[in-house]
Each structure stands twice: as C-alpha cells, then as structure tokens.
Design a protein around this nucleic acid. Sequence first.
DNA 1: GCCGTTTCGTTCACGCATTGAACTAACATG
DNA 2: CATGTTAGTTCAATGCGTGAACGAAACGGC
Lengths: 396, 396
Amino acid sequence: MARPERKTVRDVRKGNRGMLLRTLYFGGPRSRHELTGLTGLSAATISTMTGDLLTEKILMEAGQVESDGGRPRVLLRVNPVYAYLIGVDVAETHVRVELFDLEMAEKARVDYTLRPSHHDIELVARRILAGIDVVLADGQVDASQVLGVGIGVPGIVERGAPDALIHAKTFGWDGVPLGALMRAGTSLPVFIDNGAKTMGQAELWFGAGRGADHAVIVLIGSGVGATVVADGQAVRGTSNSAGEWGHTKIEMNGRPCRCGSRGCLEAYIGAEGLLARAGVPVQTTDWPSALGRVLHDGGPVVDETVTYLGTGLANLINMLNPERILIGGWAGLMIGERHLDQIRVVVGENSLTQPYNATSIVLGELGPDAVAMGAATLVLEEFLDTSAPLRLHAAS
Amino acid sequence: MARPERKTVRDVRKGNRGMLLRTLYFGGPRSRHELTGLTGLSAATISTMTGDLLTEKILMEAGQVESDGGRPRVLLRVNPVYAYLIGVDVAETHVRVELFDLEMAEKARVDYTLRPSHHDIELVARRILAGIDVVLADGQVDASQVLGVGIGVPGIVERGAPDALIHAKTFGWDGVPLGALMRAGTSLPVFIDNGAKTMGQAELWFGAGRGADHAVIVLIGSGVGATVVADGQAVRGTSNSAGEWGHTKIEMNGRPCRCGSRGCLEAYIGAEGLLARAGVPVQTTDWPSALGRVLHDGGPVVDETVTYLGTGLANLINMLNPERILIGGWAGLMIGERHLDQIRVVVGENSLTQPYNATSIVLGELGPDAVAMGAATLVLEEFLDTSAPLRLHAAS
DNA sequence: GCCGTTTCGTTCACGCATTGAACTAACATG
DNA sequence: CATGTTAGTTCAATGCGTGAACGAAACGGC
C-alpha cells in the first residue's frame, strides 16, 4: 500500500505545471485557449503559468493561427534548446554517448568500442565521462545547460540509497556502484537503469507505444527481456528487477539456458538459443546475418520459434492484459518482420479470448539503437514531472 | 501515459484527509501529536482536520495516555460504527452476503445455496438483494448507514461505462450487466470485481500481504488465478482481466485444459487437474477430502504438482519481482501447508538469484472465505480515498 | 477610416489549503 | 501554588486556482 505523501498548495502548482508541460510536449504547439480545454485548467491559471514558463524560457512562442473573425491564437511550444539531455548506452561491444535537445533530436554522438571481456567498470566510467565531454564540445553545449545523464546498462540495476548497484553477470559486475563513480567525475544528475528498460521507455514515449496505458515491450536480442507498463507506469518490482521475461519457463525440463536453469524462453527465442537450435556454428560472429539466413531458409526451427514466441506473448496477455504489445530488439524485429501474422495466430490460440481481443501486437518503431535515447528519457521524465529549474548543479 | 488530473487546493485537502484516515485505520489509535510525525502534516493541520472528522463522527476518542510530565495525549481512532460495508461472494455453489462494520468485524451473514447449473443472473441478483435486507435486519443497521456493496463474482469483470459486464463461462454469463440489475433494486453504491481479485485484496489489506507494495497473491482452487500488486496498486490491465495466471502455459503441448488450450498451469495445479492426474474418479464430489488423501499418500503426482507450482511461482518472481508471494485458495492452502518448503526449493532453482532473494513466499492468512470481505474492501478503499460523507444515496 | 463583433488573453478579488508562531490546556513535581 | 513540560488550538501569512470583469487583436461592413 504505497502511502501518498503529504501535499501542500505548492504541490498543486507543481502537478499542474507538469501536466501542462506534458500536454505541450506531446500535444504539439497549442494556444493558451486550447490548453484550457486540454488541461482542464482555467484560462486564468493557464495565463499565469504560461507567463512563468515563457519568462523561464522553457516555453516559446510558435507563430500565430488566425481564428475566424477574432484575435488570432498565439501558439506555444516547448523550447527545444532550453536544455539538453545526455543518454548513454553501455552494451557488450560498445559504449555510446549521445546528446539530445529537449525534443530528443540528436545533437552529437560518440562511440567507444569495448573489447570483449574488457568490461572493467573503471574503464567504462572513464569512457562515459570522456564521451560526455566530447558530445558537449561537438554539440557546442555547455554542461550547465544539461539536465542530466541517463545510462542504460546490461543486467539488473538495484536502485537503492545511497547508490544504485549493478549486477551484470556477463560483464563480471556484481554490485558495481556506477553511480558513485559517475558522481566522482561529473556534477550532472545521473540516472541509471537496465538497457532493456530504457529501450522500452523510449518506445513507450516516442515509438510504437505512444499513448498506451497498459503495454508490454519485449526486447529480443541475444538476451530476452521485457518492460511492463501498467497504468502508464513502468512496473519495476521491489528491487527494480521486474521484466526478466527471458528466464520464465515455457517448458518443463526444456533446453538448458545460460542462466543455469532449463526451459527458459530465452533458450528458444533469444538469438543465441535460436541460432544454436538451427545448427549455426558457435564461432559465428555476425549474428544478424546468420539469423537472416535462418529465417530466410525457414524450416521447423523457425516455426518452433514462432510457436514459443507466440506462447510467451500469450502468457503475458493472460497475466497482464495489456492493450498493446511491442516487439523490439534486433532479433525480435527480424523475426517479427517476417512472421508477425503467424505470431498473432499462435497468440490467439494460446490466450483467452477476451484479453486477446483487447491487445494489439505490433513491432517497435525505434530500432535497436534506442537504448541511449531511452536513457535520456529518464532525465526527461524527471524534468517533466518536476520541471525543476536548471542549475542546481555546477558545470562538470 | 496516464495523465494526471487537474488539481486544485481542495484536492490537497482530500488527499491529506485520506492519508490521515488511512494512517489511523491501519496504524491503530494515535494521538494528534503522533499523527504529525506519521503524516508529515503540521500540528495545525492535524488539529483542524481531526476536529472536522470528530464532528463528522468518522473519528472518535479512544482514551488517554499519560505523557511523562505533561498534558496527556488523547488517542484518536476510526469510529467502527460510523458506517457499515456489505460484501457479497457469488460462487458456484452459493451466494453469501456479509455485513461488516468499518473495521471489518462481521456483524451478520446469510448464505443462499445455488443449485448447480442454476445460475440465472436474475436469480442471483434477487438473492443478493434479499441478502442485503436480511443482514441489515439481523445487524440492526439502517441502509442509510451503509457505504456500499462490494460483490465478488467468478469470471472476468469488464469495467466500463456505463456498466460493468461480467463474463463467466462456467455460469453461462456472457456480458451480463449485474451492476444494472443491482441498481434497479437498491440505491446503494455497488462495486463489482472478480472474486479471486477481491480475495487478493483482502489478503493484501488484512491478511498476510499487509504492508507489501509489490506482491502477488495466487489463488488455487478448482481454478487458478492471481492478483498482481505493483506499487501498492492492483494491476488490472486494460480491460480488468489481468491475473489469469492459471492459463499461462507452463508446458508446450501439455495436458489439455478446460479452457480449450494445452499446457496451462491450471491443468496441473488446479484442484480439478490435480485430482484427475492422481486418478481420482470424476464423479467425486468432496474435492477437499479427496485432495487431502492424495496429498497424504504422496507419490509422483504430488511431487510433480509441487514442481509445476514452484515453477509457476518462479516465473512470477522473474517477471514481476514481488517482495511477497501469498498462496491462497482452498487447494493452495492444502498444498502449501504440507509442501511449502519443497515449493520454496523449486522456486529457488527456477528463478534468478537476485529477485528470488528479494521475495518471501508465505501462505494466505484469511482462508478461502475471504471473498466477501475482499469485496467489502472495495467499498472501504473508496471511502478511505475520498472519505466521502455518507448519505448521497437514499435508503434502499 | 471607423465601428461593432468575435475571439483570445490578462488582471484581480475571493475562497480554500497548509504553516509557523504565539497561545492555551492539562498534567507532574517540588 | 509556582514552575516546567508536553499536547493541542488559534491566527495571520502565504500560495494556488477560479470566475468575472477587463483589455487586446483581429475581421467585416460601411
């Protein structure tokens, strides 16, 4: 029973301001008049609030629209260069740092290749910090204009005071305090989450998940994960490790999985498991094209994969009753592009009629590179919620 | 993205009042002074607010406590007879109507036996309405003192305007408007939800789930369902049918399930499936004692059941990362009482270390009869949220 | 060029919320 | 009975959203 916080009149302002900002952020340019309808606030409140936001330069005017016979509407929009966001994607093979403006337009990017089994946490932290400096220089943005840094990492991110701890087996990270390392090198606010979750967040906010209140975004790469969204909020669980869909069992005494257990969904539909089942040699390095060949050739392994994937999705539908399911991740997109219709059929056979009819199954829109963007979304979310004025943090 | 509502200063009051009420409801009698600490509100606010609540008779004084050397504390508590709640359990074999006071003490109850395949909706509605009159008479409570009626029904309850529709295959109900029928016979506010969910709600509020923000309450009877709680809120899904855990697939091409599909968890751990697998004759009527014998005798079917159940729970843990899992339902309690330790072992083998360690698995406390109480909880929840004054509705 | 009309946006007194500070109430101790 | 201590209340200050009155900026007709 999450107990609500004490509220004062000031929280009212904060909440309404955030709502107005969100409306304008996602609802395009609008006039003050339209905003009264969209937010439910009175014209008086809209007037004073937009006044504030304009002088703070969070909003800007965006032209006029004639209004048959009367005073023309002045359109307002979020000022995309009011501030900037940094998103970081820490993956097995690279560290990518991207700079976005408030509207998520990419302003600069830098990639660092990571040698396999060279995932020393200090090295990764140094790369990120260096990357921040590089994108700021490239984008000609001062650190004081940056709202924060979002980082998507593999593995489980245990959020807790004072510091988020990261557990990533494949990296050899066991309770690594990346947040603390970052704070030692920059004064920017840092947000860390699992990369699959940040990607889900990106799809939910800017991709195929827009507007969905109940959704599941599944990510199929070499690993398999999911982001569950209920009532517009990501379900994190008690230690922020919800969404390990890949290691739910779909078959008793099934194939061994790299997690040590058996019958995990990931062992069937994850790229690694899929390719192994199709007899692709282990030493293959270019997995995507290998997967392309397997899918092109077809055969029982592909059919099986569709069946396992569809059944897994059906389980999500029965359990969570989402209005939308997004399939993402490089392998997920490849499978989905060829077999989405078949998948839908399998899902239909394995889920209850009523929730099945309430769900649409679609592919992700943002491609597999959205991890950094989703990470930046963590910062954006904080900004839209609090619309905290800039500059409580000094330059990096 | 569930957009927040417009807020005014009055909503602040409503929210804080609700918080104070909840604190007092679950936190026993407290003095005004203690409440400042517990709620975070100032002494001034507590003073005026408790003043209001006392004159409205929602609160009452509950003695004094000396306070070494100073003015004694006056304890405040929720007035249990300020108002009453009615909970209804519509099951396959009976309709039960119970009257509770505000503190969920049972004041009266009445049972109506339902003949199998005699689930005419009009009949059920008549039984409920009659039951309401009976318990009010027995408990010597006037309808005007009742906050509302909560009803737990089998099947899927599709919540929507203007009316909740109920789909219950086993009852032959397909889109039945029970709410409308109730409103035709009583002016009391009516809340309807799935019985498994109301039971989950009861365990969460008054049973083994107290205080858990992330929990899953599984209900194992002849059918199998689950209530998912994330951030203190029940996850309902987009059409209120989340939680159909029993029909998630645990085995590809497994046993046929009464839902028409194969390999559903319910086909293995539901009482019906379990007994069938153990070779108990179909015509057996006393399922609980039959199950008792099977469990007592042991053997591979029981071991298998434990494995299936543990694996199913492991999937929940991986997917949702709850802090607590409650096992309820008459069959669930029988299995759990004998085999909880074994179940925990299986769960450990089939879930990821980190989320497993964050979860405790316990038995439900309220027994299988908590459906009506949970239904009444729906009314209570509404009351605590809004603390709506009584009497916007006339007598029934 | 002027005026009425229409639509958009702003200003201001009002009601209602929490709060800190000053105050009163109720006890124990010596 | 005076003093100290803790509990609870009252009140002016401050902040917020709102409706009503007002001001601003266009158009059309003359």
